[in-house]
């Protein structure tokens, strides 16, 4: 792919959308913050020009909707200008959330694969397990999370693990569903071939079902890692956790630090995007190593 094409096909469309969003955001910030600013001005008996008024709506300390540059400078300050061990550093909070996301994602992926293997190989599980798995995802995570934290806290399991378990709860589902599909993806003719060799169930599993399921695994892991992050953040809310993006959101809400809330949201989004990108990249490398035809969609 040439540099020109990269700019034309990838960067341009994204940049345009970002600019549009920022523009809408600024307009929104003005209208959301204007009533409060008018109120302030009236009380202080100040009359300002339109430009002055506009500037004021963009620089309130606790705006209803912070302007993009306020959020950006908060994110920049708390990411690059603070020690990463500081309680105010977004890197520190992101790291706390990331570690429980990683543990939960790993457990969830393993659990999902295990369930899928069971469903594909044991007829009884195939018939009984799926409805329960689907039902498990119908329960709102916000209702389950506090109970998990409280129950585990009662048996002295606190800290990272309860949060990770909520991530696990959310992330095993896409992996289980994707892997059931993946392990069943070999065509009849490929399975017949194994039968003509009198291959054992284990040989068919390792030499056919597992390699055939790899693309499905990475697709579902992309969904699972984003779900894990949501799980970790949600898990931080009811614990009164002192660290993590979730606790940053909660603290911001308590003290009406709207800029902090938005900064934490941005940090969470960036983290999610990074995690999904990493999974996608690893998936691409693995598929390349497995001889997949290189994509030529942008060539």
């Amino acid at each position: 792919m040439g540099r020109e094409k990269l700019i034309q096909h990838r960067i341009m469309p994204v940049a345009v959308i970002v600019l549009v969003i920022i523009a809408i955001w600024y307009v929104g910030a003005y209208f959301m913050n204007a009533p409060f600013q008018r109120d302030l001005d009236r009380r202080a008996n100040v009359t300002s020009t339109a430009i002055e008024f506009l500037e004021k709506t963009m620089s309130q300390p606790k705006p209803t909707l912070p302007a993009p540059h306020q959020v950006a400078s908060n994110v920049f300050e708390n990411t690059f200008l603070r020690k990463v061990t500081s309680n105010r550093s977004l890197v520190y909070h992101a790291w706390v959330t990331l570690s429980s996301t990683a543990v939960g994602f790993t457990l969830g992926t393993l659990l999902g694969i295990l369930i899928a293997v069971g469903i594909v190989h044991v007829k009884a599980l195939d018939r009984s397990l799926m409805p329960w798995i689907i039902a498990s995802q119908m329960v709102p995570i916000l209702a389950i999370a506090p109970m998990v934290i409280v129950v585990l806290g009662a048996v002295n399991i606190t800290g990272l693990l309860p949060k990770a378990l909520i991530s696990t709860y959310l992330s095993f589902f896409p992996v289980a569903v994707g892997m059931v599909k993946g392990l069943r993806s070999p065509e009849l003719i490929q399975l017949d071939l194994m039968r003509t060799y009198n291959a054992s169930v284990a040989q068919t599993f390792w030499k056919l079902r597992v390699p055939a399921s790899v693309p499905f695994l990475f697709t579902s892991m992309k969904v699972a890692i984003a779900a894990s992050l949501v799980g970790a953040i949600v898990g931080e809310l009811p614990t009164g956790a002192v660290a993590g993006i979730g606790s940053k959101l909660l603290a911001g809400a308590y003290y009406s630090q709207t800029i902090d809330i938005w900064a934490a949201l941005i940090a969470g989004s960036v983290l999610a995007a990074l995690l999904v990108a990493i999974v996608a990249l690893v998936g691409k490398l693995v598929e390349r190593a497995m001889g997949a035809k290189p994509e030529r969609s942008l060539g």
Binding site: E187, I189, Q190, D192, L193, M194, T196, Y197, N198, A199, Q203, K207, L208, P211, A212, V214, M290, G291, A292
Partner: peptide, 24 residues
């Protein structure tokens, strides 16, 4: 057995495909 379609496993090279029955 030779099927209507080649039924080669796409993640294996040609020699690895031929090795499949030998591995099993």
């Amino acid at each position: 057995y030779v099927f209507q379609a080649p039924a080669l496993y796409p993640w294996r090279t040609i020699e690895k495909n031929i090795a499949l029955p030998l591995e099993i």
